[in-house]
Simulated scan of single mutants.
Amino acid sequence: MSFFQNFWEFLWWMFIFYAFFAFLWALFMVIGDLFRDHELSGWWKVVWILFLVFVPLLSVLTYMVARGKGMAQRSMEAARKSRAETDEYIRQAASASPTEEIAKAKSLMDAGTITPEEFNRIKSKVVV
C-alpha cells in the first residue's frame, strides 16, 4: 500500500509542477504580448499588469480569452519580422559584392597564388 500511496503522491506532485510551469509560461507570454502590442494604450497596460499582479490566474485566463487572437497575430508578425531580419543579415554577411570578389581575385593573381586564366574564370562567374 505504501508504494501506491507514494506513486499517486508522486503523480500529484508532477501534475502540480507541470501546472505551475504552464502558468508561468502563460504569464510571461501575456506580459510579453502586452509590451509588444503598440495599439494598446499605456494606461490599459498598467491596468492589465495590476490585474496580473493581484489576480494572476484569472487575469491570464481573461487576457487569453479576450485578446488571444490578437496575441497570436502579434506573435506570428514578430516571428516573421525576426526571420526576415535574420535572412537579410545572412544574405548580407554571406555574399560579398562583385567588386570585392574581383579585387580579392586580382590581389591573389598579383601575389602569384592564381593564374590569369583562373582570375578570368573567377571574374566571369562573379559578373554573371
Rank of each mutant, 00 (worst) to 15 (best):
F17K: 03
L40I: 10
G68S: 04
L61F: 11
E9S: 15
F17I: 15
W12H: 14
L11K: 07
P98Y: 06
I114Q: 10
M29T: 08
F51K: 05
V55T: 04
V47E: 01
I90P: 00
F51Q: 02
V55P: 02
I90V: 04
L27H: 08
L61Y: 08
L27F: 09
S97A: 14
I102A: 01
L108K: 09
G68Y: 02
A19P: 04
L108G: 01
S97Q: 07
S124E: 01
L34E: 00
F51T: 05
L52F: 00
A19H: 10
M1C: 03
E77H: 11
A84E: 04
A105L: 02
M71D: 03
F3E: 11
S97E: 09
I102L: 09
K106L: 08
R67A: 05
L27W: 09
A105Q: 00
L11M: 11
S82C: 04
V46C: 09
W8F: 12
F15Q: 10
K69Y: 10
K125I: 11
D33H: 01
L24Y: 02
L50Q: 07
A105G: 11
L57Q: 07
F15A: 15
A93S: 12
R91V: 00
A72T: 00
F119T: 04
A94M: 05
S82D: 13
I31A: 02
V128C: 08
S41G: 15
K69Q: 12
R83D: 11
W25N: 10
R80N: 12
S41P: 05
P98H: 06
A72G: 02
A19C: 02
L24N: 08
V55E: 08
P116M: 04
D110R: 02
K123P: 09
A103P: 09
A78R: 13
L108S: 09
L52M: 08
A111E: 03
P116E: 03
S75W: 06
